[in-house]
C-alpha cells in the first residue's frame, strides 16, 4: 500500500501539487487522471523519488520514503517497477538485455535463471521470439509491453505506469490496460497508473483520483465517476460526443 499525505510541490514559486493526500491499495489498479499539465506526472515522479517534494509524506507500507537514508531508499526502489510514457527502453541493448538489466544489476542469479525469468516475463506480456530484436525494431505497443516486462522482472511490490497507452490504437490500449490489471491482481501489486484515456478509466479504474490544477479535485471508482457532480471532472471526461452519449445512456 502507498499513502501520500499533504504533498506540496512547486517549481520556481509556481505550485504544482497543492496538499494532495490519497491512499493506493495493493491488488487493485489505482488511476490518477487529469488534464495535461495538471500535475499527475510530477506526483508520480515524486512518489518514485525522481522529484523532491517541498513538504508532505510518501509512505510505502507505512515507511516514509522522504525521511529515509540512501540505503533504505535503495531497498524500496528495488521493489519499484516503472513503465514510462515512451517505454524508456535502453537503445544500446536488445529486448532480452533490456528486460534482464535489473536482474544483472541487482541479483546473483545464474545466466540460466535469468534467461528463464526473462522468457517468463516476455511470455507473460504476450511477446515471444523478440529477444534479439533491437528496441528500434519494435512497434509502440511492443515497446510498452517490453517496458512492462522489464518493470515486473524483479517481482516489484509497487508498479507505476505513466500514461502506458498514450500513442497506441484503442485495441492495443485495451490489451495494455488488461495486462496491467491482470498483473496487479496476480501478484498483489500496488499499481498506480497515470492516464487521461477514458477507456482506461472505465475499463480498469478500481480507484481513481482526479487532479485539477495541482489539487485533488475528486476520488472514487469507475462506477461512481459517471455520477459525479464535479464540474471540472465532467468537463474533463465528457469533452466529446462519444462520451456525452455514453453518459446519457448510463444515466438512462
Amino acid at each position: 500500500m502507498i499513502e501520500i499525505r499533504n504533498i506540496y510541490k512547486s517549481f520556481s514559486g509556481r505550485i504544482v501539487l497543492n496538499n494532495i493526500s490519497a491512499t493506493f491499495d495493493a491488488g487493485r489498479t489505482n488511476l490518477t487522471i487529469g488534464r495535461s499539465g495538471s500535475g499527475k506526472t510530477v506526483l508520480m515522479k515524486s512518489m518514485v523519488g525522481l522529484e523532491t517534494i517541498d513538504s508532505g509524506q510518501i509512505l510505502f507500507d507505512g515507511k516514509d520514503i522522504t525521511t529515509m537514508n540512501k540505503k533504505e531508499r535503495h531497498l524500496i526502489r528495488e521493489r519499484i517497477g516503472m513503465v514510462f510514457q515512451g517505454g524508456a527502453l535502453f537503445d544500446s541493448m536488445n529486448v532480452a538485455d533490456n528486460v534482464c538489466f535489473p536482474l544483472r544489476m541487482f541479483t546473483n542469479m545464474t545466466p540460466e535463471e535469468m534467461n528463464k525469468r526473462v522468457d517468463f516475463c516476455l511470455e507473460r506480456v504476450g511477446l515471444s521470439n523478440v529477444h534479439t530484436l533491437n528496441t528500434s525494431e519494435l512497434s509502440g505497443g511492443m515497446r510498452k509491453r517490453v517496458a512492462i516486462a522489464r518493470a515486473i522482472v524483479g517481482n516489484p511490490k509497487y508498479l507505476f505506469c505513466d500514461e502506458p497507452n498514450s500513442g497506441l490504437d484503442p485495441q492495443t490500449s485495451i490489451l495494455i490496460d488488461n495486462l496491467i490489471k491482470e498483473i496487479t491482481e496476480e501478484y498483489n501489486i500496488t499499481t498506480i497508473v497515470n492516464t487521461h484515456d477514458m477507456n482506461s478509466v472505465m475499463g480498469i479504474g478500481e480507484h481513481i483520483i482526479f487532479i485539477h490544477e495541482g489539487n485533488l479535485a475528486w476520488q472514487g471508482t469507475r462506477h461512481t465517476i459517471t455520477q459525479t457532480s464535479n464540474q471540472e471532472l465532467n468537463d474533463f471526461m465528457f469533452n466529446n460526443e462519444l462520451t456525452k452519449l455514453l453518459k446519457a445512456s448510463v444515466q438512462k
Binding site: 519499484i80 516503472m82 510514457q85 515512451g86 527502453l89 537503445d91 541487482f106
Partner: peptide, 17 residues
C-alpha cells in the same frame, strides 16, 4: 542527452542504479 530526454536515465534512477 538523448537518454535524458527519452527518460532512460530516469528509468535507471527508478531502478536504484
Amino acid at each position: 542527452g538523448t537518454m535524458r530526454i527519452t527518460e532512460q536515465i530516469d528509468a535507471l534512477d527508478v531502478m536504484g542504479v
